[in-house]
Design a protein around this nucleic acid. Sequence first.
DNA 1: CATATGTCCTGAGAGC
DNA 2: TGCTCTCAGGACATAT
Length: 273
Amino acid sequence: MRRGIAGIAGSRIAGAERVKCRRRPISIEPRGVALARRLRGRRIEEVGRLGKRVVLRIDSGDRLIFEPRMTGLVLVADPPTREHLRFRLDLSDGPIPHVWYWDRRGLGSVRLLTARQFAEQLGEGKLGPDALALSADGLRQRLAQSRRAIKVALLDQRAVAGVGNLYASEILHLARVHPAKRCDLLTVTQWQAIHSRMIEVLELAIRHEGSTLSDGTYRNALNQSGGYQNHHRVYDRAGRPCQSCGLAAIVRVVQAQRATFYCPTCQTKRPRP
DNA sequence: CATATGTCCTGAGAGC
DNA sequence: TGCTCTCAGGACATAT
């Protein structure tokens, strides 16, 4: 998403508007005219990303945060439907005239934060370091004391930001670690494997522009499908043969109300002989 | 404090 | 066919 709108860096904001929508309104802050007033005429200095959020740094020092959660899209092209459009940014002095925020289920948000709000809400202690900027030792030090299952802990955005449910299963499969293994019982070697696979999976998923699942929701900024779903080894593959060992069938379990997929042969809970 | 569970949302798909 | 029910998983609120 970030890469899809990276070209708006340097552009000026001509307007910002909530799109009238029949659905229950999503969270767009600040409410009222303050949002447009604080954005109009400003320049976008940087198009960044923090964990799962797209962050526009504005020359006022404010930051505009797109948080798409499950079904939000940040778009440059025409949206999948008109009825779920939520927000529009009008731009000048650049190659891209409009950025849209679209959200079918409406769990996401668009928020303009002051520098202070940004530090308070997304700074240290709130959001952890981005997964791609965290060392293996850093990852281990942030999680190794926890008694939680590793799969559940990887989804804790205060520990490490950017790993979602689908990717947590893929990471642990490639690292050959059982998803229910307690963090405090993992070896240093296992932490290193989890870390290197985390980087590998996320970088590859980004290169392939994300995973468009069977519901077809996820689209890139040009309203095109992602490609990483074709690389999934375990996610949504319950009952199908493991592509890593060719022996066992992929298993689906539920941890913390989330689906987890793994191979019982490749990812044993006991240490390997 | 750490960890676990409940909540919100919409549309697809299953089952009858 | 048309209805009801379940499920998907982001982050945060509340409970243990």
